[in-house]
Design a protein around this nucleic acid. Structure first.
Lengths: 144, 144
DNA sequence: AATAAAAAGGATAAAAAGGTCTAAAAATCT
DNA sequence: AGATTTTTAGACCTTTTTATCCTTTTTATT
């Protein structure tokens, strides 16, 4: 469904959010260890998230990544996916046709219409605040 | 969502089914031209589908690929996807965790539970007969 | 029997995704 | 100011996916 990069990106964002709730900035090594991902690769992905204004970074001693507290309520899964995998997952044809549309639909176009809308809606309405809250409470996990 | 191989596999199966309805066997070149896919690569994918008893092949002059008429009602999208991409799409964690489960869920596990079930149900209940019928009637398309 | 037509199989190549490494830049602390 | 810590940036490597090509096998037709 998502690329590896996107999976790591979502997991990292949720972890950073969980720590930002406690006013803690976290470094790349800590993030990679907590979400069980390759550190250098994860660093690359976080750079993309910084450029897309999803997370903030601070260099130097006591630096790291963080998310302003109010912003964790605004960031939804869609934002992270768009920043890393782009818009294709929402817009492209299930069977890979270049110009699939209501006027010239692929054979499964109608069948997938509503489920794709549901998926989009789900991702639009699931914010990082909720996801990180569950993590903090020990109700969800980011590795194993 | 699906690999390129799987997209071609589904498109090819629908086209073969549409011709099998008319008792026509079709060769790889015709299939690739109709669904606008690379012929040698598509041939490889069809081999997998033959091994998985989704389609039949006949060698020699007037040979090609076909699907017994009654079988087009039994083949669903799930069958094709399983034969090519395997079961991961149905079973693996959205965020890539190895042991994501109800007991140790990833942060989006609950959110995606019902939509994944819907997706599975949709794919289980969409058969090649319906899809090829729409194609024959000119209501759906397999290229451009 | 010879020929031609078609899929099957295997080796190879190109492109994309996934992942690593090192040097540079920025910020803090002493 | 200098040393240290941390992100940033870019080049590089590896694996997987996508795609091609050539030979072999099978079958039908003449």
């Amino acid at each position: 469904m998502f690329s590896k990069a996107c999976e790591y990106g979502i997991r990292a964002t949720i972890y950073i959010a969980s720590q930002s709730r406690k006013e803690r900035r976290v470094g790349i090594k800590e993030i990679a260890a907590f979400i069980d991902s390759p550190a250098p690769f994860t660093a690359k992905i976080l750079q993309q998230l910084v450029k897309n204004r999803i997370i903030d970074s601070v260099k130097g001693p006591n630096g790291g990544f963080e998310i302003p507290k109010d912003r964790i309520f605004q960031i939804c899964i869609t934002d992270i996916v768009r920043a890393i995998d782009g818009n294709e997952i929402f817009s492209s044809c299930v069977l890979g046709l270049d110009n699939c549309s209501e006027a010239m639909p692929c054979p499964v176009h109608a069948e997938f219409r509503s489920i794709r809308a549901e998926l989009k809606s789900l991702m639009d309405n699931t914010c990082v605040a909720t996801l990180s809250e569950d993590l903090v409470k020990g109700k969800s996990f980011l590795k194993v």
